[in-house]
Simulated scan of single mutants.
Amino acid sequence: MLNSDASPGAAMPAEVQTRTAADDQAASWIARLGTRTISLDTIQEFSRWREVPANAEAYRRAEQLWSRTGELAGDPDIQAALVQAQRRRPRRIGVKQVGAIGLATAMAASLAVGAFLWQGRDTYATSIGEQRILQLADGSRVHLDTASKMRVRYTEGERRIELAEGQALFEVTHNPTRPFVVSTTDASVTAVGTVFEVRRVGLETRVILVSGAIDVAQAAAPGAPQRLQPNQQSAIRAGKAKVSAVNAQTATSWTDGELTFVDTPLAEAVAEVNRYLAAPIILDAPAAATTPINGVFRSGDRTAFVSAAAHLFNLRAIREPDGQVRLVSSRNNEQG
């Protein structure tokens, strides 16, 4: 908190005086990304906005202020702002009014309702085609992908996430005395401050390290955990783990609303695309199933993927009465 004894006529702190349009946009983005449903177009728009260095820095500051709302819960200024917000009587906070409250409190007041609502929940889920960006109470951030479900369980000694299904990218706030653990039925991943992805689909858990270091322990094989390095992945299935090299940037492109395929078997690519579709693609062309495909596609853009696959592999797209699209072998190409 800034000094609350500052008189109304005193010089304003530099941070308040130099507030930019990017700061206001960053606050707006935190509010937008904290809603229950986020479209893929919104994710892509946010990614483009944050590519500008000034915007990225403004968003970092906004995240820090957002994470402080829990610490400021007992502050009388915050409580007054919450009462005003809950009564739906918004009032404009000008530069002169900020004075005693300070920039941190003013930002927290504008976001406090959403922040406290998030902290009061422990289970998060997405439907098919939906993504959510969650700011946790400790400042860590989770990008929850389509058709995913997780539970947050924080204690004084541990920060634990239980990923029941789907996948998520975790950006963990550094705290060596309070480990951050992500668990599935197959494995648990322990990190201190790092960025990594965990995916639980079908009978397999896959862990990809983007930066930092993590320890991966198998639930069915007690023993020393496995330390992963950046651009490595561990695939755990039926009590066995396989570590291999991976391009983490490509593998996590879904966080920007894109699916990137590099020499990916067509059947595998179709399965990945289908995770974002309510009306999926049916691959009914055995000869083409193992043929690799390369390309970048927008998540949920069935038409573009079907068109590309039909053209590349000499397939025909048949639209079924229930809305699904079937890809079959043919000499004639037809867009789905």
Rank of each mutant, 00 (worst) to 15 (best):
L2G: 00
A6M: 15
G9V: 03
A22H: 15
A22Y: 01
S28Q: 14
I30P: 01
D41H: 07
I43M: 13
R48E: 12
R50K: 14
P53G: 11
A56Q: 04
R60H: 08
L65M: 15
L65G: 08
G70R: 06
E71H: 13
L72A: 12
G94R: 11
K96W: 07
V98D: 08
V98C: 04
G99D: 01
A100E: 07
A106P: 00
W118F: 01
T123M: 06
G129T: 05
Q131K: 14
Q131D: 04
L134G: 04
G157K: 12
E158P: 02
E162V: 15
L163G: 08
H174G: 02
P179S: 06
T190P: 00
G193F: 13
F196C: 09
E204G: 06
V210Q: 11
G212W: 06
G212F: 09
P222Y: 10
N231E: 02
I236A: 01
A238Q: 12
G239L: 15
A241M: 11
A251E: 09
S253T: 04
G257W: 14
A267V: 13
A269V: 09
A271P: 02
V273T: 09
Y276I: 06
L277R: 03
L283A: 03
T291E: 12
P292W: 11
G295F: 13
R302Q: 15
S307C: 10
H311V: 08
N314D: 05
N314T: 10
L315Q: 11
I318G: 02
G323A: 06
L327I: 09
N333V: 14
